[in-house]
Simulated scan of single mutants.
Amino acid sequence: MPLARSRLGLLLLGALLTFLLYLLHPDAGKRGRPAANATARTGMAAGELPVFYREVSAGPQAGGTASPGRPDVLFLHGQAFTSKTWEALGTLALLAGEGYRAVAIDLPGYGDSPPAEMVATAQGRVAFLDRVLQELGMRRPVLISPSMSGRFALPFLLAQGDQLAGFVPIAPVGTKDYAAEQYHRVQTPTLILYGDRDASLGPQALQSLRHLPRHRVAVVPDAGHACYLDKPEDFHRALLGFLRQLK
């Protein structure tokens, strides 16, 4: 009996030591925790309008602080997509690594953002984006607007383009709703971007957006309407080239 008790005591002591070593190990408890550069998923309250957004903090930009002199970048999305698209493509992480604060939102009624009555009109959509910029603390960001999100971005550009450091329309809808004279008045630097296999919205948007006086055009080869999905490396190269020349 004394021998059995001694062995049991040693086993219990060994188990206790193993447990203590686990707790003291530098990797202990990391499972289930977000990594230092994980995407922040937060419900953002814009007045009474909750909006879901994604933002990646990485490297020296941890905490959402961008490098001096580099504009913030706000990503909208197309009808079949959400803010998750820009996370999955690595776009948010890429820009964070380059020193930009990059944020992607779910537009009202998409992804994790609930519907909002105010965005039923163009004026309401302008007010919506204005409030989003205020609540996110984004001053003169670059606005990225693919496809359906043109219904939000274009009226904002024409009404408050001076609040943007740059504009990147990616085959947006709604370009025919405005006259050439309206586009002529906008002084926001613009990168008109579309895939060369987009035979519909890409060229159609170009016909209207070419009236923006400070525009340049980038055509992504062998890419369709969602050119950023078809050729992400080419898309990222064009986007970063545009961002780097902004002042």
Rank of each mutant, 00 (worst) to 15 (best):
H25M: 02
K30E: 07
G109R: 05
S83Q: 06
Q79E: 12
H236Y: 06
H225T: 04
L240P: 08
M118H: 04
G109L: 05
L94W: 07
A223R: 07
E98P: 06
A165M: 04
F19K: 06
V186F: 02
L239G: 11
R70S: 11
H215C: 03
A122K: 10
R5S: 08
P169W: 07
L21R: 03
V73E: 11
A104T: 08
L157H: 03
L206T: 11
T190I: 09
A62V: 13
L76R: 08
Q245V: 14
Y183D: 04
R101S: 09
D130P: 06
L209C: 08
R237C: 04
A58G: 01
P189S: 03
V51A: 00
L17W: 08
R210S: 12
L11N: 02
G32K: 10
D198R: 03
L89N: 12
P60R: 14
V173W: 01
V73Y: 12
V73N: 12
D162S: 13
R216S: 14
D112A: 07
A159S: 15
S67G: 06
P146R: 14
A205H: 08
D234M: 09
L133W: 10
P2F: 08
F81Q: 13
M118W: 02
Q182P: 02
W86N: 10
L13Y: 04
G97I: 08
L239F: 13
A80H: 07
V56E: 00
L240A: 10
L246R: 13
